[in-house]
Deep mutational scan, measured.
Amino acid sequence: TSEVNPQMLQDLQAAGFDEDMVIQALQKTNNRSIEAAIEFISKM
């Protein structure tokens, strides 16, 4: 599995997102940004 940015993971979990969804979103967006991860999650 590709690495996820631990700070982004922590921030998104703090915002109430599920850890598994956050990890998948960060991997799919290559840790580009929190906004990109949220957009990915919203389309899941």
Rank of each mutant, 00 (worst) to 15 (best):
A15H: 05
N5Y: 00
E39A: 11
Q27E: 12
Q13G: 05
D20Y: 03
A37D: 04
A14E: 14
K28G: 11
F40W: 15
Q7E: 12
F40V: 11
I41Y: 04
Q27Y: 08
I41F: 03
G16H: 06
L9S: 10
L12M: 10
E35V: 04
I38M: 13
F17W: 08
I23S: 08
Q10A: 14
Q24F: 14
E3L: 05
R32T: 13
K28H: 15
L12I: 05
L26S: 05
Q7M: 08
V22R: 02
M44E: 15
Q7Y: 05
V4T: 07
M44S: 12
A36N: 05
E3D: 11
I23V: 14
M21D: 14
I23G: 06
M8L: 08
D18T: 08
Q24K: 14
S42G: 13
G16P: 01
D11Q: 15
V4E: 05
A36Y: 02
N5I: 01
S2D: 11
Q27L: 11
V22G: 13
D11E: 15
Q24M: 13
D18L: 02
Q7A: 08
G16C: 00
F40K: 08
L9Y: 04
N5P: 02
Q27C: 06
A15E: 06
D11M: 09
Q13R: 15
G16R: 00
M44N: 15
M8D: 04
F17R: 01
E19P: 11
Q7C: 05
F17S: 03
E39R: 07
F40S: 10
A25V: 01
T29G: 03
V22F: 01
A14T: 08
R32E: 15
E35G: 09
D18R: 07
P6T: 14
M44V: 14
R32M: 11
I34Y: 04
M8T: 04
S33A: 01
Q13T: 13
D11A: 13
A25S: 06
A25G: 04
Q13A: 10
S42E: 15
D18P: 10
E39S: 09
T1F: 13
F17P: 02
N30C: 07
I41K: 07
M21L: 14
Q7L: 06
E3Q: 10
N5V: 01
I38E: 13
N31A: 04
S2V: 06
N30F: 00
P6F: 10
A37P: 04
A15R: 14
A14M: 09
S2M: 10
N31I: 02
T1W: 08
L12K: 01
M21I: 15
A14F: 04
E35F: 04
I23P: 02
A37H: 02
E19R: 15
M21P: 03
P6K: 15
I38G: 09
L12P: 02
Q27M: 10
A15F: 06
N5L: 00
K28R: 12
N30H: 08
Q24I: 13
S42H: 15
Q13Y: 03
S33Y: 01
S42V: 07
Q7P: 01
D11N: 13
I41W: 01
S42D: 14
N5S: 08
A36H: 08
A25T: 01
L26W: 01
M8I: 04
D11I: 11
E39D: 10
Q13F: 03
A25L: 01
V4W: 02
K43M: 11
T29D: 00
I38L: 11
N31P: 04
I34E: 11
A15P: 00
K43Q: 15
E39K: 10
Q24P: 06
I23T: 12
L9K: 15
Q24Y: 07
E3C: 00
A14K: 13
F40R: 07
I41S: 08
N5Q: 03
E3R: 08
A25R: 01
F17T: 02
Q27P: 02
Q13I: 15
N31S: 14
I41P: 07
I41H: 06
Q10D: 10
L12F: 01
A14D: 14
E39M: 06
D18E: 14
T1L: 06
G16Q: 00
T1P: 08
E3K: 12
L9D: 05
G16D: 03
A36L: 05
I41A: 06
L9G: 03
A14I: 06
T1E: 14
L12D: 04
E3Y: 08
L26Y: 14
K28F: 09
I41Q: 06
Q13P: 00
K43W: 07
I41R: 05
S33R: 00
